[in-house]
Design a protein around this nucleic acid. Structure first.
Lengths: 267, 267
DNA sequence: TGTACATCAGTGAACGCGCGTTCACTGATGTAC
DNA sequence: TGTACATCAGTGAACGCGCGTTCACTGATGTAC
C-alpha cells in the first residue's frame, strides 16, 4: 500500500511526519484540556502553523477527533492484550484468572495515565460528534481480548462448574427451553446466541475473535456484564466519585476485579 | 427562612417564579442539546428575555449549572428512595433484595428517561467546571439509599452468611489482623472503617445516614463496588457500548443487578 | 390616602474572545521530456 | 543534465458564528413618612 522507503519522496516523508505530528499535538491538547478544549486552532498554534494549513492533513476537526478516538481504543486494546500475553500459559492452573486480573489492571492503569483519552472513549459522548464505523473495530479490542481469555480458560477446563450465585429465580424473564441449558432467560439467551453467531460469521475477524465465539452463552452474558462493571469502577475512580473515601482505589479495584473474575466463572 | 405566602410581595413572587422558570428552560436545553450546548444566551432566548437579564437570577453560567446538577442528583436520589419505600417490609423474607432490585431499576429508569442529566452527573466532568461543595450532599443520596437498604437487611438478618466468592487469596494486600475478621486487606479495612466513622460523626446526617454506618466493613466495601458497577452498566447502555448486541438491555441489566444483590450479600 | 425616595427587573448596546472553515495567493517540490 | 510545466504545502486575510459578561439606562414596584 505505502511506497517503499527508498522511493518515498521528500514530500511524502514530510507529509507522513506532519500528519503524525499534528495528531501528537492534538493528543497533547486533549491530555491538557480535554476533548472540548481541543481545537484546530490550538493545535496549529502549538505547531507554529497557520490554522488553515491543517486542512491539508485532516479534512475537518471531526476527522482529527476520530483519529484520536481510534488511537485511544487501540492503545487501550494493546495494553490489555500485552498484559494478557505477559501471563504465560504454563503458569499453573489459574492462568486464565491471572490473565483476567492482569488485563483489568492494565486497562485501569492506562485509564489513570490517560484520563482525558479515557473520557474521550468511555465518558459521555462528545456533543455533535457521531462516531464513524471506523471506530467499531478498535473499540472491540478490549472486549475481544477479555473474551479471548475466557475462551482459552474454557478450552483449558479452567472454568468453575458452579458459577456462583445466579439470577433471582423469581424473575419472570427466566423461562423457556433455554433456561435449563444455560440458566438464561429467553431474551438474554437469544441476544447471546446472536452475538456468538455474528462473531463466527464475521469474515474480517481474526482467529482470536472467532475463538471468542466459542464461549458458552451464559459465560458470554456474564462477561459482557463484567466488562461494563469493570469500566464502571474505573469511571467512578477517574470521575471523582470515590474522592474522600476510597482513595487510592487500588485495593478496592483489586477486590472488585477478583469478584468479577469469579463471577465470569474463572477458577 | 422564606417569608410566608401572604406577606410575599409581587416582586418576591415574580422572582421566585422566574428563577424556577429559568432553571426549567435550562433543563430543557440540557435535555435537548446536552451540557455543552447549554448557554445562558440560549436559555434567555427561550424565555424571550435579553441574555443579561439572567444575571439578576444567577450570577454566572456555572451557578446555573450547579443548580441543575443538584436537581439531577436530587431527582435521581428521590427515584431510588421512592422505589425502596415502595417495597413494604412485610413482603416476606426477601424485602432487602426486593428493595435493592427496585432501587437499581428505578435508577436505571431515571437515567434512560433523562440521559443528558445523567451524563451531567455521571459522565465525564464538564471542562472548566469545578463542582462546589453544595453538590456533595445530593450526590450522596443514592449511595446512602443503597446503604440504608443493606443496613435494614443486616438488622433483619437477611444477609447471607457466605457472601459468595471472595477475593483472590494470593493477593498481597490481604494481610494483617483485620483479615480474619472481615476478609479485607488492610487498606480496604482502614478505608471502610474511616468511611463508617465519618458517617457516624457527621452532625448534619439524618437517621438513615447514621444507620448506614452500621453496615459491616466488608459489606460496605462490596456495596461501594456494586454501586460503581451498577453505574457502569447504566453508562454502557446509555453511551452506546451495547449498540447492536444487547439492545434492549433490560434482561442484561436485570441479570447484572441480581448478581450485584447476591454479591453484597442479600439473600 | 398621598407623596418622595429607594430598590429592583429588564433593556440594549457593546467588549473581547475563540472557533471552524473557505479561498486566492506564493513559493517550493516533483515529473516529463 | 537542463528546462517547462504540474502538483502540492503553507500563508494570510476574511466570513460568520456564538459565547459570557459588563454597564449605563429606563421604568416599574415597594417603602417610609
Amino acid at each position: 500500500m505505502t511506497t517503499p522507503n527508498a522511493a518515498r519522496t521528500a514530500r511524502e516523508r514530510a507529509r507522513a511526519e506532519l500528519t503524525r505530528e499534528i495528531k501528537e499535538a492534538a493528543r497533547r491538547q486533549l491530555a491538557a484540556v480535554g476533548a472540548d478544549g481541543l481545537s484546530l486552532r490550538a493545535v496549529s498554534r502549538e505547531l507554529g502553523m497557520v490554522s488553515s494549513a491543517l486542512y491539508r492533513y485532516y479534512p475537518s476537526r471531526d476527522d482529527l477527533l476520530t483519529s484520536l478516538i481510534i488511537d485511544a481504543y487501540t492503545a487501550l486494546g494493546e495494553a490489555a492484550e500485552g498484559a494478557i500475553a505477559g501471563v504465560r500459559p504454563g503458569a499453573g492452573a489459574g492462568a486464565g484468572r491471572a490473565r483476567w486480573v492482569a488485563a483489568c489492571g492494565a486497562i485501569r492503569a492506562w485509564a489513570v495515565a490517560n484520563p482525558h483519552e479515557y473520557a474521550l472513549i468511555y465518558g459521555s459522548p462528545v456533543p455533535g460528534y457521531r462516531a464513524p464505523d471506523a471506530t467499531i473495530g478498535p473499540a472491540a479490542r478490549v472486549p475481544f481480548a477479555l473474551a479471548g481469555v475466557l475462551a482459552d480458560a474454557v478450552a483449558a477446563g479452567e472454568m468453575s462448574a458452579d458459577p456462583g450465585p445466579v439470577a433471582d429465580p423469581e424473575r419472570t424473564d427466566l423461562k423457556g427451553p433455554d433456561l435449563e441449558r444455560t440458566g438464561l432467560g429467553s431474551p438474554l439467551a437469544a441476544q447471546a446466541a446472536a452475538l456468538s453467531a455474528a462473531l463466527v460469521r464475521d469474515a474480517t475477524a481474526d482467529a482470536a475473535v472467532r475463538l471468542a465465539a466459542a464461549v458458552p452463552a451464559d459465560v458470554l452474558v456474564r462477561a459482557v456484564i463484567a466488562w461494563a462493571q469493570l469500566f464502571g469502577m474505573i469511571s467512578f475512580e477517574l470521575f471523582g466519585q470515590f474522592v474522600g473515601s476510597f482513595e487510592p482505589a487500588d485495593a478496592l479495584f483489586a477486590y472488585g476485579v477478583a469478584q468479577l473474575a469469579s463471577f465470569v466463572g474463572l477458577r
